[in-house]
Amino acid sequence: MSDSLRNKVVVVTGASSGIGRSIALESAGRGATVILIARRQDKLEKIAAEAKELSGADAYVFPTDIGKSDEIDDTFNNIVKVVKHIDYLVNCAGFGKFETFMEMDRHEVTEMFQVNVLGLMYFTRLVGRLMIEQKTGQIVNFGSMAGKVPTTKSAAYSASKAAVIQFSNVLRLELKPFGVKVMTVNPGPVYTNFFNIADKTGNYAKSVEKFMLDPDDVAWQVVHFFGSNKRELNLPLSLAVLAKLYNLFPSIGDRVSLKFASRK
């Protein structure tokens, strides 16, 4: 572990498990002060204790439902009371559900967009304004390969992630004059609790096992690019290539997706 993030403040949403947890601990291992945001306070407290042991720095816990704007407001106001600056914001909070769109409950679709897109955008605006005042900072938004390559039973989730990707692209242009950077991370399937909600049958997780990413490996790569001008991080390489080919040959891409990538 290094001290490359000593005296830096890293805010992570969705920090109670999966990639968010791994990024928080990877940042702490490099000396960062971490701010952990998720709904479950008990889980956050355990991760905060791990982070403090790794960094020797502070770790703050803010239980928050990122889908509720009033809770986001309260959390942001409390964050600026305990830290003087925010160097990195990593938006990991989100969830998905694999089901044909015509059968999905409309309330689930609304909730998905509220958390994956609208909550992310609202919290990013609050932190982004602070970074503009600082004239420095980096925002890391988690999209997904699902936002680039279509597969069946993921219409709502894929649409939410495509929204995050395009939001990040525009935000990057708007914040560049102020010295604030924006990077989008688009992972393929990852070994996390995501599939406990998205795919309760377990069929999809088994079918994409060879593409599965380790959350700690993803976290290392994300934190490695803190402070860089990297625009997008697409993982794994095989799916990144597939996404590029899909844009070039969409008709062929549809056929390939139906045959190989839609096994949910």
Rank of each mutant, 00 (worst) to 15 (best):
S2Q: 15
S4W: 12
V12N: 00
G18C: 11
A28P: 02
G31R: 11
G31W: 09
A32H: 06
V34Q: 06
V34T: 14
A38T: 01
K46S: 10
K52L: 08
E53Y: 08
E53A: 09
D58F: 07
A59M: 00
G67H: 04
S69K: 03
S69R: 01
S69F: 02
E71N: 08
N78R: 15
N78W: 13
N78M: 15
K81L: 08
K84C: 11
I86G: 03
I86H: 08
I86L: 07
N91I: 01
G94H: 00
F95E: 01
G96D: 14
M104S: 08
H107E: 15
V109E: 02
T110Q: 10
V115A: 02
V115Y: 03
N116P: 11
N116Q: 14
L118R: 00
L120T: 01
L126C: 12
V127T: 04
G128F: 04
R129H: 06
L130H: 05
E133L: 11
Q134V: 08
T136V: 07
V140N: 03
S144C: 09
M145L: 14
M145F: 11
G147V: 08
K148V: 15
T152A: 07
S154W: 04
S158G: 14
S160L: 01
A162K: 07
V164N: 01
V164C: 02
I165A: 01
Q166P: 10
F167V: 02
S168W: 00
L171K: 05
L173A: 14
P177H: 13
K181M: 08
V182W: 00
T184K: 08
V185R: 05
N186V: 03
P187K: 02
N193F: 08
D199F: 06
N203P: 10
E209K: 05
F211K: 03
L213A: 07
P215M: 03
P215T: 04
H224N: 15
L237F: 12
S238C: 08
Y246P: 04
N247Y: 04
P250Y: 09
D254N: 14
D254M: 05
K259A: 12
S262K: 07
S262Y: 08
R263T: 10
